[in-house]
Simulated scan of single mutants.
Amino acid sequence: MTSTSQRSTGADVGSVAWLGKTGRLAAVPTGRRTRRRLPHLLAGVLLVVVCVGGALWWAASTQGHISVLAIARPVSVGHILEPADVHQVEISAADGVATIPAGQAATVLGKPMATSLTADALLTPGSIGPSTIPAAGQAVVAVGLKAGQFPLELAPGAPVLVVLATASSPTTSLPAAQGSGDGLTWVATVTGVARAESDQTTVISLQLPSATAPTLARVPAGQVTLVMLAGGER
């Protein structure tokens, strides 16, 4: 009888070992579970912050930009614009440059170029229509050059420095010329490039001041070299 009572008492004690001294249920420890959930909460908050920051950055970077038309490949004056000649670029609306919106591409396709433009040059309303070359006070001179006398990257619209290896006449008869060592130089703009198939001569049309053009036209073949300048350099 005594042993049975003791076993019962021991079982009861084991079954209520988790009770508090007052007989009430003891609180289940939650510190370990909280510590496990904390990294997941921090990761969720960080993900939200990154998403919001990315959205704000994207909105700020695209605000104030417009889509306009630019030249995809070099075109010469008189060329009829084709779809492959233009592409869309993003520029700042605050630039104040006269441009053609990308959505108006249909209004310029099939029309002639009024000027020659290089690749990536912005298409402007003034560059479409009747030829504006030569401009007022300007003239166009054709020069025949061999390989090595001009850069291979030369294209219509490119600004160049015309360098004379040897002066063919006194410097006093070369108006608008700039002294450059033993030779002379003029700033001009390429309006056309025609590479001949039968020989090694390439005919390049240059636009420069009317007072200088006749002098350049009299320079003997082989004495002219072209140096291509940066787009804004003159």
Rank of each mutant, 00 (worst) to 15 (best):
159 P>W: 08
96 G>I: 04
153 E>M: 12
115 T>R: 09
184 L>T: 00
159 P>H: 12
178 Q>V: 09
96 G>A: 02
140 V>M: 06
151 P>H: 15
137 G>N: 05
148 G>T: 12
112 P>E: 04
177 A>Q: 01
151 P>T: 14
182 D>Q: 14
176 A>E: 01
185 T>R: 00
112 P>N: 05
176 A>H: 00
167 A>E: 07
140 V>F: 04
120 D>H: 15
154 L>G: 10
172 T>Y: 09
153 E>V: 15
176 A>S: 04
106 A>Q: 14
135 A>Q: 11
130 P>E: 05
174 L>W: 01
166 T>R: 13
172 T>E: 13
170 P>W: 03
183 G>H: 02
114 A>E: 03
152 L>R: 14
182 D>M: 11
157 G>M: 12
146 K>A: 15
150 F>V: 08
123 L>T: 05
136 A>L: 11
173 S>D: 15
126 G>H: 02
154 L>C: 12
176 A>N: 01
141 V>P: 00
180 S>G: 05
140 V>S: 06
166 T>Q: 12
124 T>K: 04
153 E>A: 15
159 P>D: 08
116 S>R: 09
106 A>V: 14
127 S>C: 09
105 A>I: 13
186 W>Y: 03
181 G>P: 06
182 D>L: 13
130 P>I: 02
127 S>L: 06
184 L>R: 01
125 P>E: 01
130 P>N: 04
99 T>R: 07
163 V>F: 07
113 M>Y: 04
118 T>V: 15
155 A>I: 11
152 L>N: 14
116 S>D: 09
167 A>N: 08
112 P>C: 05
173 S>R: 15
